[in-house]
Every structure is written in structure tokens, then in C-alpha cells.
Design a binder for these strands. Structure first.
Lengths: 222, 222
DNA sequence: TCGTGTGAAGCGCTTCACAGCA
DNA sequence: TGCTGTGAAGCGCTTCACACGA
């Protein structure tokens, strides 16, 4: 059952480290844009809004990626982080819910550079099904299982109203999707092998509102 | 403005507890809709996707809000959590960046029930300034300081491209805003007394993508 | 009796400080 | 010399287990 792990390639990465990998990657891509070839942990920490010790500890969970006395090679680290995130080839995502928010994501050109492509759009509304948008045709959610297999879809972005989110989620799970980003303000029930991330904008605003109450003391961030 | 500290009304609330308060509030409002008057910690934990011990510990940080042997009064707890979040009166928010994503938030009718109202819209694009939308008129970001004072704006939702996010952020900070929800994929630099929450959709998708890798390599054979 | 509130134990993440290596 | 990688210490969050009170 146990595989031989080359270096620590299959060692356990702490959850908080996983959440920061996309942040580091973004900072490294910025640095690439500035023609920087090497960054040390202090520089990367400053860009990411953390600190040098955090950066070193995080990256050490992924392997020995730096050079003592020098720092981290930007290009190498970009490649390594992308591989860890599984986005060396773009991941294919389905957009479920062709409303205002869904349309905004469809029109957003920034996903490609971050390793994600929206390759299918689903909705339940018969008036929307058949609409062409960004080269895709809005499809009935009943046809999702076929599309998932045909297009190799692995991720879903759920932008339907809260009232229909669980139903749409069930359809996604039934079609074999194992990762869902849910923008509906409701708790989704899924099997253990399916990952869900909750993106509740109103909740974020409420958290910020809480901190406003304690405006006397110093502010938080993230 | 300081209240007499009855019980622990101004005691320090752990950051993780603050993040769950909006979740509990949402679950309680759902329960209200089902005409439930009392919930115990197990029931609330199930709805929120956590557990009974977590609920009791979290709520105990806010005071003695339950009744032993019974549970928590739904209406009372709703009022208490809303007060703690500072949304008994809606908070006024500015939307900065009238693009696809910003338009989606403007059209979203769900914020009102969560205690937040968008009362002003800003953009830099002269073609967009002057547009009327949802009863609001898109205003130049240069006029933000006036609007913040006039409308009592305390929150900002930043939906501009990454390249102009820091500039818009600086304008918000200069106008006195102390809480910013940033959808641009970039790190914002702000004074210590300003709270920023980062909402990076692509990063969320990358985190989900990471977990897809784990699942496939850890999975049972077949 | 039942369920909350809470000290204490358990656990994981962050920070520190320095050994190790280019 | 300079910076990474890492054990260890520090800290905060979660979970446990039970006293307390309605």
C-alpha cells in the first residue's frame, strides 16, 4: 500500500501551508515579470505579507527547494509549486449557475494564467440553456455527467442561488466531481472524498464589520 | 463610547471564532425560517458543519448566551450575534470597480438580509462614470472622500483589476475607510488600523486543485 | 435529567535560533 | 559569509470531560 516517496514528494503538507502556496506562486510570477531570477525567504515573505521563517518552513514541507547562501530560484520554484498544485496542465472547471456572478467569472480572463480553464457552463433555466457565451454553450445541468467525462472536468464553480445549491451539488457529486467552490451562502453536504470551499462574500463583509467595532485597537488582516 | 463591560462584552474573541460567527448567524436565520425557537449546540454544530464543543466554546467567548438543560434561544442569539457583528443597523459599503464582478455584486439582492448595503459605486473609467444602476450613479473615484463622509460608508468592496488595486486602495484609505474586501489578486499595503480580507477566486481553485492530487495518490487502488 | 460553560489536555501552526551547506 | 532547513519552544485553537445550573 505504501509507495516509496522520492524526497518528500508525498509527505503531508499542513493545511495552512497549502493555503499559502497559491499566494507564493502569485508573488513569484510577479517577480518573474520584474525579471528577478532569485528571491530569498525575506523577499518572498515581504511580497506575500508573511515573514521569512514562515516562507522557509512552508517551502521545506515541499522539499529542499532553495540554495543555502543564495535563496530560491524563481523559475524553479514556480514550476515546483505549479506541479504541486496540479496546474502544469490547466485544470478544467465547470461553471454551474449562469447568473450575474457566473457570467462575471466566465468573462474573467485571469483564470488561464492561474492554471484553470472554464470549459463548460450549466444552468437549469430553459431560457438560458442554449445561450452561447465566450465560445461555450450553456447546457442543462441534467447533461453534466456526460460533459464531465467528455471534457475531463475536475473542478466546479457553483454560482446558483442557495435554494438550489444542494441539488446542483448532488448532481456534481454524482457526475464524479471531487472539488467544488461554492458561492451560495449555505452549507453543502458531500461525501468525505469531495472537497468543498465556501466563498461567502456577505460573511467576509460581516467579519470586516466585526473588526470595525474594535476600531480603537489595531487592525487585523486576513 | 465605551460600554460598561457587563460580563465579557469586550473581552477578546479568538480570530477563528470571529470567522465562524457569520456562519452561525446564517444557520440561525435558517432555523428561524423553519419556525424553530431553540437550538442546542449539537444541532447548531450540525447545521454549521462543526461540532457541539466548538459551538459552545465559540459562543462562550461572547457571553453566557445559552440556558443549561435547554440550549440557545434562536431569536436571542440572532440579535446577539448581529450586535456583535455591528449589523443591527445595516453597514454601508462602497463598491469600487464597476466591472463584471462589481456589477454582479450590485445586482445581488442578498446583502440586505446579511446586514450590508451598497450605497455608492465608484470607477475610474469616464465612460462608466454617470451610469445609473440599481438606483445608484457611478461616481469618479476622485470623489470618494466626499461620498464616504456623506453616506457614512464604512466598508469597501474592491473589484478593480490588480494593476489598479493599490491605487484604489490608497484612495479608500485616504478617505477614512477602515475595512476592505479585496477581489484583486494582489497584496494590498495598508496602515495597521485598516482591515483587509483577500478574496482570490483563482487561489481557491488552486487549493482545491492541490487536494485533487492528494486524493488520487492516496486513493485505494482501482 | 439534560445541555451549557469551562478548566485542562491535546494538537497543529508559528516563531525562534542555530546547525549545515554553498 | 549568507541564507536555507529544521529541531525546539511558544502560542492558540480544538477537543475532552465534567461540574454546574435550569
Amino acid at each position: 500500500m505504501t509507495h516509496v516517496a522520492n524526497e518528500h514528494s508525498e509527505r503531508d503538507v499542513p493545511a495552512m501551508t497549502v493555503q499559502r502556496i497559491p499566494l507564493y506562486l502569485r508573488c513569484l510570477l510577479e517577480a518573474q515579470g520584474e525579471r528577478l531570477t532569485v528571491l530569498n525567504s525575506k523577499q518572498l515573505g515581504d511580497r506575500a505579507g508573511t515573514n521569512a521563517a514562515q516562507v522557509r518552513k512552508d517551502l521545506s514541507h515541499l522539499g529542499e527547494l532553495g540554495t543555502r547562501g543564495i535563496g530560491y530560484d524563481v523559475d524553479d520554484l514556480v514550476v515546483h509549486l505549479m506541479r504541486r498544485l496540479g496546474i502544469t496542465e490547466s485544470r478544467s472547471a465547470a461553471l454551474v449557475g449562469f447568473g450575474r456572478l457566473g457570467s462575471a467569472f466566465l468573462g474573467y480572463q485571469g483564470f488561464a494564467a492561474r492554471g484553470v480553464r472554464i470549459v463548460a457552463v450549466f444552468d437549469t433555466d430553459p431560457d438560458k440553456v442554449g445561450t452561447e457565451i465566450e465560445g461555450l454553450i450553456v447546457t442543462s445541468i441534467d447533461d453534466i455527467a456526460d460533459a464531465v467525462e467528455r471534457e475531463g472536468i475536475e473542478l466546479a464553480i457553483l454560482t446558483v442561488p442557495a435554494a438550489s445549491a444542494q441539488k446542483a451539488c448532488d448532481a456534481l457529486v454524482a457526475s464524479g466531481i471531487k472539488a467544488i467552490l461554492n458561492f451560495a451562502p449555505c452549507t453543502l453536504t458531500v461525501p468525505d472524498d469531495v472537497s468543498v470551499r465556501q466563498a461567502d462574500v456577505a460573511a467576509d463583509l460581516q467579519i470586516l464589520s466585526f473588526h470595525l467595532n474594535r476600531a480603537s485597537s489595531e487592525g487585523y488582516s486576513r
